[in-house]
Design a protein around this nucleic acid. Structure first.
Lengths: 134, 134
DNA sequence: CGTAATTCCTATCATTTCGATAGGAATTAT
DNA sequence: ATAATTCCTATCGAAATGATAGGAATTACG
């Protein structure tokens, strides 16, 4: 699965944040989106680490986007939330480098596929996931 | 993972068959490709069911392609071997149809992504995976 | 006919991945 | 002080996935 639940949750959280101007608490967002709060926490921390959202700690704290919604390509959000967006293990970084990489005729195909997917996901932004855009 | 080990094994088996004119026994193919024989068996049965290869039973039996190598798009082989090529669960067939499908703003994106991936994989054939094509 | 090599079929195991949960420390507005 | 929040680490449970086991059915060939 190239895009897992985790990644899709991330997109929904980001889209929800995009409707706010003030910082919003995750509890509220998670409830609104029907996402388990604790799971949402772990996802948002990935987003913070990737500098996609800003956090404000303490009471009345919360999260806030750092850019305009149209400046968040889906590729970037998913990349921050997911382990990997690679279409195969061969290009996923893990796997300690396949020993046949040098001669494998498939590898260039997988690389090109990853590139195609990345490009596709870069053509959409958070704005495309916000229902109220009519 | 959109393309799993199972799918990549399928491609390698098909590419190996593509180098033969006579029917070849799976034991031989699997050994040559370093694929566990029993696992290879289960993969090949999927390929037979999808009419991508022909089988000959009994002693001196084996498997044989039914078309020329350039007439096997990777999309078709992978589709036969894998559970699903969908990029998300949302478009994967299972999941008993998401209740929000009608209004979900992401769904059209996932559909378009699946279409893009399918089209990409249809631009390559077994020939592109055969080392000796120079 | 009998044997050996093969495809076919079903069931199960083992490992990894992934979604989710638990408990609590650190921070901060009021 | 208190309450609400973000932050951190560890773990659980279920599902997916790669792999294995054992044997039935079929067929070439001596």
């Amino acid at each position: 699965m190239i895009i897992s639940t985790r990644g899709r949750y991330a997109l929904r959280i980001m889209a929800a944040l995009a409707t706010r101007t003030e910082s919003a608490s995750l509890r509220e967002i998670a409830e609104g989106e029907q996402i388990p709060f604790k799971y949402a926490e772990s996802i948002v921390r990935s987003l913070v680490k990737a500098n996609l959202v800003e956090s404000k700690r303490g009471k009345a704290g919360g999260y806030l986007l750092t850019r305009a919604p149209e400046e968040y390509p889906l590729s970037e959000v998913l990349h921050a939330a997911e382990e990997s967006l690679a279409a195969t293990d061969c290009t996923g970084g893990k796997e300690a480098a396949c020993p046949n990489a040098a001669t494998c005729p498939s590898l260039p195909v997988w690389r090109a596929l990853d590139e195609t997917v990345w490009e596709f996901l870069s053509r959409y932004t958070l704005v495309d996931l916000m229902p109220q855009k009519d």
